[in-house]
């Protein structure tokens, strides 16, 4: 099964999403932490009212977290789930057939 082209494709699709996305959100978060430590002048710039760059940046971390969760869920539903279920059912039936044959 591991070398089945459909499994290889499933693995490729999963990895193609989760690894780049993990690197992206980690880098985005690291930028935020680094800015909090070393970019205080910029973080303190007031945009409007009592909203400064630091607050906006923080809120954007919330937004990106919610956003990535939604995007991933849609991606998984479209590109991963049916393939995974198909392969799983095949493996289960294969296993039952073998047991039945003994």
């Amino acid at each position: 099964m591991h070398s089945d082209p459909r499994f290889v494709e499933l693995k490729k699709r999963l990895y193609a999403f989760v690894f780049p996305m993990s690197i992206a959100f980690m880098a985005w978060y690291l930028l935020y932490v680094l800015m909090s430590a070393f970019g205080r002048d910029l973080m303190g710039v007031v945009l409007f009212g009592s909203v400064n760059v630091a607050l906006l940046f923080g809120i954007l971390q919330f937004v990106s977290t919610f956003g990535i969760a939604v995007v991933y869920t849609n991606y998984a539903r479209r590109k991963l789930d049916s393939q995974a279920v198909e392969l799983r059912d095949e493996l289960h039936h294969g296993a039952t057939d073998k047991e039945g044959g003994r």
Partner: peptide, 10 residues
């Protein structure tokens, strides 16, 4: 909060 993306994706 951001930590949950590690749990979700990986």
């Amino acid at each position: 909060l951001v930590a949950w993306l590690v749990a979700l994706l990986l």
